[in-house]
């Protein structure tokens, strides 16, 4: 396997923007827009696990779903192995649908309650013809074994499983089409801590065995640090820092990343307390102010921060980018 640090980019995202129209009033007009993702640029390299971290509502899920075209981008480019995904129609997307899959945050709403595991898996396999018809049943048994479920799970309905088991089913569904790239949208944050580790280990094993590339989304920097090769720190639809996970504590320079590091650990997924070192409110994503999105809570804030948006610039260390005026070159 190639070294992720130097591997070629599998997915290139350029200036990606996703706005949600907010309708209201008696005429149901668009009254404002939620700026969920606000012009982000990054690469996902072949064979790496790229983390995305940020507080609830900062646009992590939106980003993950937009790069695989579950949501239509408002603006920007997405290239997969050089192919511009953002230009493809439903039919032309098909080969990429097979190659890119997603694991969802909520193991309860991500499985159709009316389908048995077998039907759920077979549906997609058949659709893409990724396995010859005669081998589908064996393949499903193998998949179920691979994600660590018992054989008899195949003919059960989702409500017969626990949260962790459901998440394994969700992983099996994502793997069924033999994808290359997987978006894991907070796959463990709805689970008990003891089960989180099992699922993360499963993901790691699968990644090694199946040669996957993973975009791993989490609000927990601790999990990201252990699990990922690199991390994108998001704040209010922007990437504020991008760096390698190896030297996270030493190299992190953005005030928000530092705050996140200080505020670790947030082990309890329900614990959405404000980060302790941070004061002030997250600005509303409906009507973002000009300048740095973090200005309202930043301990290092200067006048310039409120007027001008800091660009995401490369630092001396390769692969380290940061968007902050207070960080000297």
């Amino acid at each position: 396997m190639s070294d992720p640090a130097t591997a070629p980019a599998l997915l290139e995202v350029r200036d990606l923007v996703k706005h949600f129209p907010v309708r209201g009033g008696i005429l149901n007009r668009v009254v404002s827009r939620v700026h969920a993702v606000n012009g982000v640029t990054f690469d996902v390299r072949k064979g790496e696990i790229l983390g995305v971290v940020g507080e609830s509502g900062c646009g992590k899920s939106t980003l993950g779903k937009t790069v695989i075209r579950l949501l239509e981008p408002t603006d920007g480019q997405i290239r997969y192995e050089g192919k511009p995904l953002h230009e493809l129609g439903h039919r032309d997307m098909m080969p990429f649908r097979r190659k890119m899959q997603i694991i969802f945050q909520d193991p309860y709403s991500s499985l159709n309650p009316r389908l048995t595991v077998r039907k759920m898996l077979r549906e997609g396999i058949r659709f893409h013809g990724s396995v010859p018809e005669a081998e589908i049943d064996d393949y499903i048994v193998e998949l179920i074994r691979q994600v660590g479920l018992r054989k008899d799970a195949a003919d059960r309905f989702p409500h017969e499983f626990s949260g962790g088991q459901r998440q394994r089913i969700g992983i099996a569904r994502a793997l069924a089409l033999k994808p290359e790239f997987i978006v894991a949208d907070e796959p463990v944050s709805a689970l008990d801590v003891s089960i989180q580790a099992q699922i993360l280990n499963l993901l790691l094993d699968l990644k090694e065995n199946l040669d996957l590339t993973i975009l791993f989304i989490s609000h927990d920097l601790k999990v990201i640090e252990h699990f990922c090769d690199r991390v994108l720190v998001m704040y209010l639809g922007h990437i504020v820092e991008e760096l390698s996970c190896d030297a996270l504590h030493e190299e992190a320079v953005h005030p928000y990343t530092k705050a996140l590091l200080g505020a670790n650990p947030i082990n309890d997924p329900d614990d959405r307390r404000e980060l302790e070192v941070l004061e002030g409110d997250v600005p509303s994503p409906f009507d973002p102010p000009p300048g740095c999105p973090f200005a309202g809570r930043c301990p290092l804030v200067e006048d310039r921060c409120r007027q001008e948006m800091p660009p995401l610039v490369d630092r001396k260390t390769a692969g380290h980018r940061v968007a902050c005026w207070a960080v000297e070159e």
């Binding site: 579950l70 649908r97 899959q101 969802f104 945050q105 909520d106 991500s110 159709n112």
Partner: peptide, 11 residues
């Protein structure tokens, strides 16, 4: 719901 998105992701 996410299972609808999952179906969309399959294509």
């Amino acid at each position: 719901l996410e299972y609808i998105q999952a179906a969309t992701a399959i294509g």
